[in-house]
Amino acid sequence: MNGVHDMGGMDGFGSVEAEPNEPMFHARWEARVMAMVRAMGAAGAFNIDASRYYRETLPPEVYLASSYYRKWLLGLENMLIDKGFVAEADMAAAHAVEPPKPLKRGKFRIDDVERVMTRGQFARPAPAAAKFKPGDRVRAKNIHPLTHTRLPRYVRGHVGVVERDHGCHVFPDTAALDLGENPQRLYTVVFDGAELWGSDGDPTVKISIEAFEPYLEPA
């Protein structure tokens, strides 16, 4: 979806301000939110693509005005309600009043913590041969799906060069909607700054994205 989360190339947000000696969390509730997202994800309530999609579908004014972990909290609440793990009545009471819904991988236990400390595996066996190879010129398709996609707006319609083939990975566009892993070939595609930004671009800059094969066409 063409949401405000797709920020590459937007102007007007000001300069980058780094905080010296920044703590890992700025308040304890941030850590609780992070841990709830990790635990419920590991228990099988949702996948990483769905959790990203729920943050992207927050109203734009909420997305832009909320801190990072506030967005995580709001996305988590919406996702758990939509998927039936939490009821509106539970939220209103601030307690569990409706019966629980079974989790795919069961209750998250202390013994499961090791599992969340290693990243998931997203590579899958290739269902088909690669359409492109390093060195091929490709165009990012001019597509505007209304749901989750990882093809940023700023490259759509532009021509780049395939640099690496990463094999097949879980396809976020379908996984986010619980429509299956639908593995697709993943490539690093490099664009010249001038191709993306025209004469406003810095000619010494090259930008790459990680592009799934359905995002690309021969150029």
């Binding site: 509730w29 609780r32 939110v33 709830m36 635990a39 419920m40 228990a43 309530a45 909290l73 988590l76 609440e77 758990l80 793990f85 939490v86 539970d90 939220m91 601030a94 307690h95 569990a96 629980p100 989790l103 209750k107 998250f108």
Partner: peptide, 14 residues
């Protein structure tokens, strides 16, 4: 945050 954590714990998810 506290309410959500209470709900998840009481439902036996965590």
């Amino acid at each position: 945050v506290r309410a959500l954590e209470t709900i998840l714990t009481e439902k036996g998810y965590v």
